[in-house]
Design a protein around this nucleic acid. Sequence first.
DNA 1: GAAATCTACGTTAGCGCTAACGTTGGCGTT
DNA 2: AACGCCAACGTTAGCGCTAACGTAGATTTC
Lengths: 352, 352
Amino acid sequence: MPLNSSPRIQDVAEATNVSIMTVSRAMRGVEGVSPAKRAEILRAAKRLGYRPNRNAVSLAASHSTLIGISLPTLFNEVFADILDGMRRTFDMAGFDLVLDNSDYDPQREEAWVERMIDWRPAGVVLSGVDHSQRVREQLRGANIPTLEIWDRHDDPIDICVGVDHEAAGVMIGRHLASLGYRRPAFVGVEAGRDPRAEKRLAGLRRAFADHESQVMVRRSERHASFEAGMNETIALLAAPETRPDCICYLNDHMAFGGMSTCEKAGIAVPDGMGIVGFNGLGINAVLAKPLTTVLTPRLLMGSMGARLLLARIHGAKVDRSVSIPTELFPGQTTRLQERSQNLNQGLGQPVR
Amino acid sequence: MPLNSSPRIQDVAEATNVSIMTVSRAMRGVEGVSPAKRAEILRAAKRLGYRPNRNAVSLAASHSTLIGISLPTLFNEVFADILDGMRRTFDMAGFDLVLDNSDYDPQREEAWVERMIDWRPAGVVLSGVDHSQRVREQLRGANIPTLEIWDRHDDPIDICVGVDHEAAGVMIGRHLASLGYRRPAFVGVEAGRDPRAEKRLAGLRRAFADHESQVMVRRSERHASFEAGMNETIALLAAPETRPDCICYLNDHMAFGGMSTCEKAGIAVPDGMGIVGFNGLGINAVLAKPLTTVLTPRLLMGSMGARLLLARIHGAKVDRSVSIPTELFPGQTTRLQERSQNLNQGLGQPVR
DNA sequence: GAAATCTACGTTAGCGCTAACGTTGGCGTT
DNA sequence: AACGCCAACGTTAGCGCTAACGTAGATTTC
């Protein structure tokens, strides 16, 4: 063994007087080695500090133990949670994670998928289900187990685990409508930058269509932050005649920014204005007035997705599309119960 | 070329009637190929959809284009920022990132470093400078370019880029002392879980030693969250006789939890209690009463670290240890100027 | 008790690429 | 004309490992 170079399988073979194939079998726990010899080989390997070169293993096996993961961003607690949920599972199974952040840019994702395939990864994880045709073709063509996570779809590239965002939007809309809100607004980011948010907006519109209410929409050109929530809310409040009576935000951070803005402007939350966030982020646990939001079980989604992808990698038959239920969390930023329309109009007559 | 298998260099060589070595040179942009032939080869490669198998490249070259990155967690905005700062730089240079989260556990880090070395990575990034002796030996022994980021050290494993946390602690302490605070407290997490925080505490103690003030310390057993900040603050306020007059938190999130707790308890911030966070996190931009905190340029640190590591990988001579300056941000959670001790004691005499 | 079977190995032939060195032919030099 | 030189290729020998097949001796089968 040359100086300053790690030991190879050959070195272990020589140290134990067996062929390198026997060492290979012993190291991998494959059958065909007597228990005594296996123990001796493992001891020698440990003594010499031998560890298989993963590049060589990957080449010989025609695929690596890398899992490629593409998420839009890690600034978003949602994706950090999902990643964490997956990490433990993949780690325990001996896979290493190659991470990319697409910054919500499909072209970046496409370029990265191509590069990732060059590693012959054991699997690939993409966020959401909206991907370029080329990405779909490449992954299917290369026959790489692929998990789409966070959103759901009836025809995933391979398998998917996620939330039904349109249904969540409907749930929010019905809740608001049942509390008597009738002038809804939605604050998100530029169309295409977050397809999930657009689906929730579609659900919201569907729910309010029953009440013949239009949904006002504002989209920030920046990312979905506290500040963006403030700015768009200021814009929504500018014209009193078109002022909404409730605002649904893309997430809790924006919603918090929006709520602060309303209160600074002297608008009472939840009576003058209903505020709804999304995701149930950490911040909500310490707000004096917790946000009404939708809880999304992200860690669970991550670990479930990872386990499913592992099963798929090992050739098991798994569900193609798994839907994760969400839950509406009624905070103090929406009314507790319907405020009578009549009272609202000052008629002074109780309804019912 | 077999069905359902990607083209190899051989296929391109046959399509263009040259040896595979010429294709290899053309693809890599290495000299020794005429411009005409190079163009023809690249055209054929594109047409066939040929892309070099990275596992084979890595094996033949005896090292991969992977960069291993170990961060404690991504829930912490700090590390998400640092990662993002590095990502762009590495991405543009054609490196792929293998990510691990150690959860602040040195043993996990050690195990991961060992596994990472099996990939013969082009470089490794670790967070902080506190690593087991074995990690240091392994990385130095394998001669892998290694960047330690976020903290600084005079004898890094290889190179380091970070903040001088003890100096930051001193800066905070002097600021508080200059404003007349004399009963400081520090709220962090269990010792060993965040060595940087301990260094800041040491700096804080050093600054207050000049005023013969002891620093009260509380450490949460949970992670540095809003809630943990609340809980430890409640504990600090429990005994009125030992109540501090200012509290430094491990980060802005904890500080926000602490500030909310004080105000709920009827303690005026900043007069009755000074509150200092750390890092200048996103939340601070939207708080009604911005926290006094220390701004740490994390994106800059990430991209600078990445550029330095790249230079190191390419064999350039670089500084072993780079210190990044921090800046104290005076928010509204510490007094604006010294409140006279005399006035404080009701003597009614102006000082000086 | 001879054939069939099994256990515990070894041998051969790659996986797909690159470093290092070899070869060829055209060109300038004297 | 003889030589050296260089650009533009090709050839050889791996990188470190595994799949697939081969084989010797022990064990079982009927």
